[in-house]
């Protein structure tokens, strides 16, 4: 119910039409990685997936924002099916543990490898988590996603979104080579998102 209302409001404001350019929606395990420009990114990307895939696909959300109070925690974990990630983990703790748990169970993830929202339409440098996950879970397909216009509809630092049509573009799977250096891989991953812009 809350989910439907949230989807309806999002569709009304920003549209969010999915475009599959080079990959198709399937139930095999995937890690979707996208540029991050607004608070609507998570809702929009997740709602662009077909309903049956949403059940087994978990957006990764920052614990300091989406877990800051009971309401935010309820919306993120119950409505959006999200897993919360500690951006500043305690010493000796693996911050990717909750993500690994999801992947171990065979389900899929949506991650925003920039780590935080950017001001520009194109993404900045990617953080290393994507590389760790890609290396440890070679069976998961890496799908680049570009969220068009969202940084315009709800720029960082503003209170409410304005209605601007956005689209969600899913690109072809990114191959992973175990012998490739981490910075080179992260740059290639970023380029795969940029190529969809």
């Amino acid at each position: 119910m809350i989910r439907l209302l949230l989807f309806a409001a999002t569709r009304f404001l920003v549209g969010g039409h999915p475009r599959w350019q080079g990959s198709e929606p399937t139930s095999r395990q995937r890690i979707y990685f996208a540029n991050h420009g607004s608070h609507l990114d998570t809702v929009l990307l997740w709602s662009a997936l077909p309903p049956d895939l949403r059940e087994t696909t978990h957006p990764v959300a920052a614990a300091d924002y989406w877990g800051r109070n009971a309401l935010a925690r309820f919306v993120s974990t119950h409505v959006l099916n999200a897993v919360l990630l500690q951006r500043r983990p305690k010493k000796g703790e693996d911050p990717l543990r909750p993500l690994r748990d999801i992947l171990d169970s065979g389900e899929s993830l949506i991650i925003f490898p920039e780590g935080t929202r950017g001001d520009e339409p194109l993404p900045r440098g990617f953080k290393g988590g994507l590389h760790h996950l890609a290396r440890d879970y070679p069976r998961a397909e890496l799908i680049p996603v570009y969220l068009e216009n969202l940084s315009r509809a709800w720029p960082k630092g503003t209170l409410i979104p304005v209605p601007i049509s956005c689209s969600v573009r899913f690109g072809p799977p990114l191959p992973f080579a175990p012998d490739e250096a981490k910075p080179a891989f992260l740059d290639r991953a970023r380029q795969a998102v940029v190529a969809l812009a």
Binding site: D119, P155, K156, T158, I160, V162, P163, I164, S165
Partner: peptide, 24 residues
């Protein structure tokens, strides 16, 4: 119609306030 028009118009983050006033 306004949403279509604005979507095709390259606005900047600094226009956000003006857009919000126009729409809301």
């Amino acid at each position: 119609c306004l949403r279509e028009f604005i979507s095709l118009t390259p606005t900047r983050p600094a226009d956000h306030g003006a857009l919000a006033i126009a729409f809301y």
